[in-house]
Design a protein around this nucleic acid. Structure first.
Length: 227
DNA sequence: GTCTGATCATAA
DNA sequence: TTATGATCAGAC
């Protein structure tokens, strides 16, 4: 057996798209075999497995660094689990929400705006009754937020950040926001980080992340594939 | 059936 | 602990 090398990094957007398109229709089992790895029985203990498998095939290099998957192209790769009805099964994690040091932070300079500036979505069958190795990869979609989409994101972001600045982070639930929600993003409920309390004093709370609601990502996919 | 809060693995 | 990659699973 010769060692398996990761495919090279695409140099252009077109090349990345071509290569993503070439993966469409294949199963995760086939892709795992090409990468020389064995699919886990389920994703319970490997929630990021699908995303990392696709990153490998497309030659993403960022690893766990806080930069886009394809640095040169400024493109972020996201896999999205799809149900039998063609709609996303899960919300999409975007990034962790800053809870302190927010003075002067606005939407234009937010981490989330930059994360979502250009995203390569790759739908993957996600129904739990389909064995992981048998799930098919779908057609990729390169997306940039429309003005309307960005406006929706910005509005929710500003509402949520206002609450965080006012020390109301613990009053925020997943119901806040139309397209963007704030939910815990942690290893467990013992992992704490610093935030503002109601009176401006520091408190310890669960790290939070921004997630795109399924109806928002469903609309993105629908706009591209159904029209 | 859907949603929300909780959780899992790994690297640095 | 924070960053990456997300899905699980009980509540509703």
């Amino acid at each position: 057996m010769s060692p398996i090398e990761q495919p090279s990094t695409p140099q252009t957007e077109a090349e990345l798209l071509d290569r993503a398109q070439a993966l469409a229709g294949l199963t995760l089992g086939e892709l795992a075999q090409q990468a020389g790895i064995v699919p886990p029985p389920d994703l319970r203990r490997d929630k990021g497995w699908v995303g990392q498998l696709l990153e490998w095939h497309l030659g993403a290099t960022a690893g766990s660094k806080p930069v886009p998957d394809f640095i040169e192209l400024g493109i972020e790769l996201k896999t999205i689990p799809i149900g039998y009805h063609g709609k996303p099964l899960e919300t999409t994690f975007v990034c962790v929400a800053p809870l302190i040091g927010l003075h002067g932070l606005d939407w234009q300079h937010s981490h989330i705006k930059h994360k979502l500036a250009k995203v390569l979505w790759i739908p993957v069958e996600g129904e739990r009754d389909i064995p992981l190795a048998d799930r098919h990869v779908g057609s990729p979609l390169l997306w940039q937020p429309s003005e309307e989409e960005e406006q929706q994101l910005r509005q929710d972001w500003e509402e949520l950040m206002d609450m965080i600045v006012l020390g109301q982070v613990e009053q925020i639930t997943a119901k806040h926001g139309e397209v963007l929600q704030l939910r815990p993003k942690a290893a467990n409920n013992k992992a704490l980080t610093e935030a503002y309390g109601a009176n401006g004093q520091p408190i310890k709370t669960l790290p939070r992340g921004f997630y795109l609601k399924t109806h928002f990502t469903a609309a993105i996919l629908a706009k591209h594939f159904i029209i």
